[in-house]
């Protein structure tokens, strides 16, 4: 299915606006297969919107998104999504296993209920994120890091080729962060493409091999080694990034 040098994600001339204000302006972005990419930029730079536009969750004013050369609708089976943890109500009356099983709903389609096999897949995913002991735990009783792991497990169950994750490190402790990074790098080793909205500039060079600077416009995008430069940081964040010079 994969053409040798096909792009995992190809965004062309993407513009998204809420009312009159542009949130994303004329974005071009090529993501090669098998990279672990960080999208960085200040608050309000449109990072979440970019993810949602790629997933077809917000309607762009202009532009085009392709996943392995086809529109998202044709490729959703190979795309996994981790929304922001804060986007759902964790007081919802359900347990960990049930949330993870939701990752199978796409493959199941309409009406059909998850069965034994789906359960097993969900258990495997929970093991991968180290949450197998919490299968029957109420989701309201999870810590922030555990909630994040549950969302990751749900995406793993999707068994996707391309993963889009919105701030998977938000509000997690150091141990969980380490575990998540290991998991993401494992996905990359297995040839998956992982796009992550990221906030912590200090860890970009350690965790990722590809980086996209975003601030309404795409400032720069490429391998971390060439792209994660003071010039790009300054252009993306303005003057607010002086402390980075010490790196």
């Amino acid at each position: 299915m994969q053409v040798p040098d096909a792009k995992a994600i190809e965004v062309t001339d993407l513009t998204v606006a809420y009312r009159e204000t542009p949130v994303l302006w004329d974005i071009d972005l090529d993501v090669p297969p098998g990279v672990l990419l960080a999208i960085v930029g200040p608050n309000g730079a449109g990072k979440t919107t970019l993810i949602k536009a790629i997933l077809g969750l917000v309607r762009p004013a202009a532009g085009n998104v392709l996943i392995y050369n086809k529109p998202y609708d044709a490729q959703r089976r190979i795309v996994g999504y981790v929304p922001q943890r804060g986007s759902v109500d964790w007081d919802f009356p359900t347990n960990v296993l049930d949330v993870v099983m939701m990752g199978r709903y796409g493959a199941l389609g309409w009406i059909k209920r998850p069965g034994k096999q789906d359960r097993e897949l969900a258990m495997q995913a929970l093991e991968k994120v180290g949450m197998e002991k919490y299968t029957n735990r109420q989701i309201s009783q999870l810590s922030g890091g555990q909630q994040q792991r549950v969302f990751l497990a749900r995406a793993l169950v999707q068994d996707a080729t391309v993963y889009l994750m919105d701030e998977p490190f938000q509000g997690v402790d150091a141990t969980t962060e380490r575990a998540i990074v290991t998991l993401l790098q494992e996905l990359r080793e297995n040839g998956k493409t992982v796009v992550v909205v990221h906030h912590d500039l200090q860890t970009v060079t350690d965790y990722f091999d590809w980086v996209t600077f975003l601030n309404i416009r795409r400032i720069a995008s490429g391998p971390v080694d060439d792209t994660f430069t003071p010039e790009n940081l300054r252009e993306t964040y303005g003057g607010r990034i002086a402390f980075m010079k010490n790196r």
Binding site: K52, L55, G56, L57, D73, R76, V79, Y81, P83, S87, V88, D89, F92, T94, V99, M102, Y105, G106, L108, W110, I111, R113, P114, R154, Q158
Partner: peptide, 22 residues
């Protein structure tokens, strides 16, 4: 009852539901 799973997903996580094609 027929749409149990779909409605549950809609109420819990609408964005995810849309992303997987519902």
């Amino acid at each position: 009852l027929i749409l149990w799973k779909e409605l549950k997903l809609l109420v819990f996580d609408e964005g995810f539901a849309a992303s997987i094609g519902f």
